[in-house]
Design a binder for these strands. Structure first.
Length: 385
DNA sequence: GCTATACCTTG
DNA sequence: AAGGTATAG
């Protein structure tokens, strides 16, 4: 059986991109609740699915390493993808001859066999998924200059980056998050893929699946099946949203929202059952290229009140749509057009599992100020509750 | 517009 | 209560 790849025992089969630690931290970015399917399969090694392929990622100081698992006979699928991308089959066949060697039987042990075209494509896929064209260090600098509180967090929580996720996976995963916790959400999404997604690869007893297609999610049996899998009332939302998208818009509708303005995309998503202001903003930010979308959840609401002394005129108890708009505008004014990215850094710093980072000694420890200690005390107190 | 309540499950 | 949403008043 194939095993999860580890860099130290097979570096030759890995490929890499230049990418500084300050631009990307896998441990924070892949586990801060924007995606739910990455697992740490070895120390510092993260395995998950991008674009219908299974990847393991790890990093050293200035390098992002990646390993893509390939079955020997994935060539038909590869051809289809390349035909879509406008790459001629002749060209591909030549590269296959050069780099794949003689054909092997279908049932042989899976091995990584990679043509130059795959390498270029996968390099591109990874840059796209992590949006490496966005210079995070520059953004951190600007956010820190405009906002002292951000700066106090940013020295520890470096490299927190928004992923550019598949819109379908993002939408249907986020519908699962209402009134829920990350641990349970991860289990739910995993069961969803296992039950309704295409199997991709098996590694060490773990099977990896593609995220279910819209048409699979729209099948009439879905609500009942998801209820059996413990989705609760969200089962109906998932099914109804899939049906509504296919019946009234078409399969390309979600992707199409990438090229319309933020508010238009936001309002379009809100017409789907189970999608309110918060989920719509998450989907906009995490999969539809709307960097200005600032999802306001209970954490961010607490952050706003505690760290920014944010107060509303009527002292509302709950997060109303009006608060969403006003608080979003407040953060956009403070942080600028990538406000959603900055929000993700503070959100990450708020997560229970990352509190220990705040207590670890780190190099860029700013001078000890009373204000900093107060904030630390508040956070620690919060963790206990 | 704002508030209250139900909604599935799990810890 | 947990990263909310839909509904009625």
């Amino acid at each position: 059986m194939a095993k999860h790849a580890v860099l130290s025992s097979g570096a030759k089969l890995w490929r890499s991109l230049a990418c500084a630690n300050s631009e990307l931290r896998l441990d924070l970015t892949l586990a801060c609740g924007q995606s739910f399917r990455w697992r740490e399969t070895a120390e510092g090694h993260w395995t998950g699915v991008i674009g219908g392929r299974v990847w393991t990622l790890t990093q050293t100081d200035d390098t992002l390493w990646y390993y893509v698992y390939k079955k020997q006979d994935m060539r038909k699928e590869g051809r289809d993808e390349k035909r879509k991308a406008g790459i001629s089959l002749q060209e591909e066949n030549e590269s296959e001859k050069k780099f794949e060697g003689p054909l092997k039987k279908e049932d042989e042990e899976p091995v990584a066999v990679t043509s130059v075209l795959d390498t270029e494509e996968e390099d591109k896929m990874l840059r796209d998924y992590f949006q490496l064209n966005v210079k995070l260090v520059d953004l951190y600098m600007a956010w820190g200059a405009a906002d002292p509180h951000f700066k106090s967090i940013a020295d520890i929580f470096t490299g927190v980056r928004m992923l550019r996720q598949d819109p379908t996976e993002c939408l249907f995963s986020l519908i699962c998050t209402s009134n829920n916790n990350i641990t349970r959400i991860q289990g739910m999404v995993e069961r969803l893929c296992q039950a309704m997604g295409t199997p991709l690869f098996q590694l060490d007893e773990t099977s990896y699946y593609d995220f279910p297609s819209l048409s699979a999610l729209a099948d009439s049996s879905v609500e009942e099946r998801l209820r059996d899998l413990g989705f609760g009332y969200r089962a109906r939302f998932l099914h109804q949203s899939a049906q509504k998208i296919l019946n009234t818009h078409g399969p390309q509708w979600l992707e199409g929202l990438r090229s319309v303005p933020y508010l238009q995309a936001h309002n379009a998503l809100r017409t789907l059952p189970g999608v309110g202001t918060k989920v719509a903003d998450c989907v906009c930010l995490m999969s539809l290229d709307k960097a200005e979308a600032v999802p306001i959840d209970t954490h961010v609401w607490q952050i706003a009140k505690r760290d920014y002394k944010y107060a509303t005129v009527n002292r509302q108890k709950s997060i109303t749509d009006k608060i969403h708009r006003e608080l979003g505008d407040f953060f956009r004014k403070l942080w600028g057009p990538y406000a959603g990215w900055a929000q993700a850094v503070l959100f990450c710093a708020e997560l229970r599992k990352f509190q220990k980072l705040k207590q670890m000694p780190h190099l860029k420890q700013p001078k000890k100020e009373e204000e900093n200690e107060d904030e630390m005390t508040v956070v620690c107190k919060k963790v206990k509750n």
